[in-house]
Design a protein around this nucleic acid. Structure first.
Lengths: 198, 198
DNA sequence: GTGCAGAAATGCAATGGATGCAAACTTGCA
DNA sequence: TGCAAGTTTGCATCCATTGCATTTCTGCAC
């Protein structure tokens, strides 16, 4: 990795860190892109060569989670059911991603629930990921699943988990700590996916 | 309904019509709110007392569809399964809504697929509707469904349908024929939701 | 018919995200 | 050392959105 690339990566991280700090302290809406850029010592214009929009800042590593899910599918046992593999893939994404610990993750969760623009972006990212997973799954089971059925299956699983999670948050408020959150995710998936697992 | 209200409703429709026309001809991005307001003979500022944002213009009757779904739940037979009722509610929304015929609906579908901002808004509206439906369903079956399970159920159903639809569009482009489309969705969701419906 | 209170429309100014453009820099490599 | 490619930046501009103050209705009371 060249000096150039490393510097760029460092600046990128600085931007995320600065933004997280500012969002935390002043709130999302009352932090301007100019503020963030200044805090990371770059020009306002330059910000947009790192992130396409203000929201994007909150989802810096979407690809990683998606790749993890695809990997689970690729490494399936020869005779596993599609639903079983998919189930494992979703559990993996929910569990091991650093997503529940990193300071950014907690902030992101809060903002997804509070700020419409952020929620909209999150839903879009999720929809795109679903599409990708469905494609992979269909390719993995060419004679059992066509693209449409695979998409329906993935949509059902993800939709169930997301619905359950949302309901949990509505009922219990935002989780205080990562452990509670993880527990909530587990309970939600257990409930949501029970019909497929029994 | 007073004169005032009727005039307001007429202006509102004029805005939607004007916007549909402009979006159709010039595209969404290259139509400004000022253009739309001018075409409907109102001041730019006034636009925002009718619609909270430019996107909102494309979803003028969300409530109606939601209410239709809730109505199906309210009018269920005494001993129907939750999944059965829910399935019927979704079919109702997909079927009888003018959604595949009205000129606005076709435009909306295209823009949802093409314009990120519009897609984001559509996903948010859907998520909100899901939440509402889940609440209703849980209330309708107090001893069979808690809020979280109901939300998971609704999420699974809606997710399956949406996933299937998305895949169909990706594969075949925009649908020529509503009947074929509906059939494909039914088959796909049947597979995805088999665990719930049996 | 006149006048008033509340609702609606409007103009104006300002904020803030986003983009195009061209000039000033840096870095990697020949 | 010096050029080509990749970066950074300032500047101007567009546009959605909002706050504020003003003006224009509309419904109703008298």
């Amino acid at each position: 990795m060249s000096v150039r690339d490393r510097k760029r990566a460092r600046t990128r991280e600085a931007l995320v860190a600065a933004a997280a700090d500012l969002f935390e302290r002043r709130g999302y809406e009352r932090t301007t892109v100019a503020d963030i850029a200044a805090a990371a010592d770059i020009g306002t214009r330059t910000f947009f060569s790192y992130f396409a929009s203000k929201e994007e800042l909150l989802f810096p590593e979407t690809d990683a989670r998606l790749r993890a899910a695809l990997k689970v599918i690729d490494e399936r046992e020869p005779d596993e059911e599609p639903a079983t593999v998919l189930l494992r893939a979703l559990r993996r994404v929910g569990d091991d991603s650093d997503d529940l610990v990193s300071p950014l993750a907690a902030l992101r969760l809060r903002l997804v629930l509070e700020v419409p623009a952020v929620r909209g972006r999150a839903l879009q990212i999720q929809a795109d990921a679903q599409k990708e997973i469905a494609r992979h799954l269909a390719a993995a089971y060419p004679d059992r699943l066509d693209e449409v059925t695979a998409a329906a299956l993935v949509g059902a699983f993800v939709g169930a988990v997301q619905g359950a999670l949302q309901a949990l948050f509505d009922r219990e408020g935002r989780p205080e700590d990562a452990a509670m959150l993880q527990d909530a995710v587990r309970r939600a998936t257990a409930v949501a996916l029970a019909p497929w697992t029994t």
